[in-house]
Amino acid sequence: MRIVIGEDSALFRAGLRSLLTEVGHDVVADTPDAPSTLAAVLEHRPDLAVLDIRMPPDHADDGARLAARIRTELPDTGVLLLSQHVESRLSVDLVAAGHFGYLLKDRVLDVRDFTAALERVATGGSALDPEVVARLMVGGSTALTPLTTREREVLALMAEGLTNSGIAARLVLTDRTVETHVSRILHKLGLGETTTNEHRRVLAVLRYLESHRNLANN
């Protein structure tokens, strides 16, 4: 997979570059700020851009803005945002178009999950940090009361962007069992038939959790 890295910490950039190269990816460019990252992405047209959320020039949400820009210029390029901590606002719109991931920086150390997330994002899927999902689930907990503990676990993994077989591997279940759980969850939450496309499924779950989080708070 051809990857461009945009990250202002030289230490982290070099580390990520050697890690990705080591597991067999081709890092075609690594750049320290938003404008040069955009230029590199437009020039190399990579499968995936891995971006730090906070970058020069403004050290604010430069990476997120860059992600939106890449989305309009090159809709088929995957964008994975990395962040030091969970940002309090998550843009559901960015997730909506697929090809998008959002992970905490330390997830990089879990190499197998991390590379799986990279591949999902590059091929049009989603990857959301478990921490983000957990916060959404806590907020929406009253709305989730009809679900069993197992079903909640499955829901969290769905929201992270995992496929049925990914969830099966993580929870050590058979694919069939997971399928049953998923359809029961979607039925209980009234989300309808969204199992065909992994990405739509994530979106449905997110929209659901978001709306109930707001209800729970107000």
Partner: peptide, 21 residues
Amino acid sequence: HDGAQQRLVSLGMRLRVAQHQ
């Protein structure tokens, strides 16, 4: 201060690369 976390994660990545090699 911003650096402590970056430093630790970068170190983790180097160890992972060595392990993989």
